[in-house]
């Protein structure tokens, strides 16, 4: 049975749902699963991982103990663990962390890496991934001695399969003399990366300024969603680049994408076309986003979005008087 390593990502003391999705994908491909936990906090994640069928959990630390985020040290330590446990296939996420770690590891091993996979076939060392600005899907076959895959977040659902597990400590003797991390600035606590959000509501040109994004944020709050933006809004300086959805922003894969006042350029679509459901709120019925969505409301977002917020809030609080449906 081939050994499959799964690179575990966590946030706020728990394994990310998207990471459990990778675990599920690995389980379904068969093989002996090894969860590789590079932050040294595997004890905190053991119950989460057991619930999803992981029986071998490798807790990776350096000789000094648990490592703070450091892409070079982490990549080297994970590689050392892979070598020790003879794991030659590794699955991770095509997330911000994954994009720092997986290519470093693939480069050190001179091994093939498929990033942003939307389909997986480990028996044939192959994967499907978008190519050419999301307009095509290519099947890549990886050839070599080691095989690395970065899965697009949320393509693979997390499905429980309870089991018992053992925690296996692994201490890596790693250094990084030519790359030092001087500091990490995080945004608000509990902010999910757009690439991992389940629901996203985005604004485009009609937003006109930063303050108007509060209207989208209010809707996001009742939906449990993240707020995104088109390139226009970012280039105009209304919102930071981290909120940009699209080819030169973030690629997202939510179950629901609500595009408000976004015309739908190819570059924008490239970043969100795999969304399960797309809703367009736009005054222009000819806009590409309206042509390419599942549902559209032709109207002014400043009128429509507050109504949406209010109606959804009413559903969550059915005893509150709303108005006719």
């Amino acid at each position: 049975m081939q050994k499959i390593g799964v690179l575990i990502e966590a946030a706020n003391g728990a394994v990310k749902q998207t990471s459990l999705g990778v675990v599920t994908a690995a389980r379904e491909q068969g093989g002996e699963l090894y969860a590789l936990v590079p932050d040294g906090r595997a004890a905190e994640y053991q119950r989460d991982l057991e619930a999803y069928g992981v029986s071998r959990i490798v807790n990776i630390t350096s000789m000094q103990g648990a490592m703070d985020w450091h892409p070079v040290l982490w990549a080297r330590a994970i590689l050392a663990a892979m070598q020790h446990f003879e794991v030659k296939t590794l699955l991770g996420l095509a997330s911000a962390q994954g994009r720092e770690l997986l290519p470093r590891m693939a480069a050190a091993l001179e091994a093939p890496l498929a990033m942003d996979c939307v389909g997986l076939d480990l028996a044939n060392h192959s994967a499907e991934k978008p190519l050419f600005s999301g307009k095509t899907i290519g099947t890549l076959r990886l050839c070599g001695t080691h095989f690395l895959f970065g899965l697009r977040p949320r393509v693979f659902d997390a499905l429980p399969q309870p089991c018992t597990s053992q925690l296996i400590p692994f201490q890596a003797d790693v250094q990084a003399s030519r790359f030092s991390v001087k500091g990490i600035q995080r945004q608000r606590e509990n902010t999910l990366d757009l690439s991992e959000a389940e629901i996203i509501i985005s604004g485009g040109r009609p937003m006109q300024n930063r303050e108007n994004f509060e209207i989208l944020q209010a809707c996001a709050d009742v939906l449990g969603a993240a707020v995104g933006a088109s390139r226009v809004a970012v280039d105009a300086g209304w919102v930071p680049h981290a909120m940009q959805v699209g080819q030169t922003g973030t690629t997202v894969n939510p179950k629901l994408y609500i595009a408000c006042g976004i015309s739908g350029s190819i570059q924008h679509f490239a970043g969100m076309k795999t969304s399960q459901v797309i809703v367009a709120i736009n005054t222009d019925p000819e806009a590409p986003m309206v042509q390419g969505c599942d549902y559209a409301i032709i109207g002014d977002l400043f009128e429509i979005v507050p109504i949406l917020t209010r109606q959804i809030k009413a559903i969550h609080k059915p005893d509150v008087e709303v108005g006719k449906p």
């Binding site: 600035q185 902010t191 981290a242």
Partner: peptide
């Protein structure tokens, strides 16, 4: 630029 708008400052 890192996840969710965060930044990592590094030196090489």
């Amino acid at each position: 630029e890192f996840e969710a708008g965060g930044r990592m400052i590094c030196e090489m």
